[in-house]
Simulated assay, not measured.
Amino acid sequence: MRVHAAFGADGHIIALAEIVAEGDDRLGIRLVPGEDRKLAELTVPGECVGRPLAELAARYRVEEAADGPRLTLL
C-alpha cells in the first residue's frame, strides 16, 4: 500500500492519504502541503496495511534519507 504524506520539517505527519489506482471504485484524495510543509509518496510497512491511517500517523514520522523519504517509528 502506498500513501501520500504531508509532514513538517521535524518529520511529524500532518495528513495521510492512500494512493488509489486509476479505475479503482474508491474515491481518491490528493494532499496539498501548506506553508512550511512537505509532501512525499511512501510505502506503508506490511504490518500496518489495513490499519487506520490515523494509527500510522501516530506511530511513525517521515525521515528524509539520501535515497528518499521513508517512514520510521517514533
Rank of each mutant, 00 (worst) to 15 (best):
M1C: 08
M1P: 04
R2E: 15
V3F: 03
A5T: 03
A5H: 03
A5P: 02
A5L: 03
A5Y: 02
A5W: 00
A6Y: 04
A6G: 09
F7H: 05
F7W: 02
G8D: 14
A9W: 13
A9M: 14
D10G: 11
G11C: 05
H12K: 15
I13N: 00
L16E: 00
L16R: 00
L16Y: 02
L16N: 00
L16C: 05
L16K: 00
E18T: 07
E18Q: 15
I19S: 09
I19M: 14
A21K: 15
A21L: 15
E22M: 08
E22H: 09
D25T: 09
L27Q: 15
L27D: 14
I29P: 03
I29H: 07
I29Y: 08
R30T: 13
L31R: 01
L31H: 01
P33S: 06
P33Y: 02
G34M: 11
G34S: 12
D36Q: 11
D36L: 09
D36Y: 06
R37K: 12
R37C: 11
R37T: 14
K38Y: 07
K38F: 12
L39M: 06
A40S: 04
E41H: 13
E41R: 14
E41Y: 11
L42N: 01
T43P: 05
T43D: 14
V44S: 01
G46P: 08
G46S: 13
E47D: 13
E47K: 08
C48W: 13
V49S: 11
G50E: 08
R51P: 02
P52I: 07
A54L: 08
E55G: 10
E55I: 09
L56T: 00
L56R: 00
L56K: 00
Y60E: 00
E63S: 14
E64Q: 15
A66G: 06
G68R: 06
G68F: 04
G68M: 05
G68N: 05
R70H: 09
L71S: 01
L71P: 00
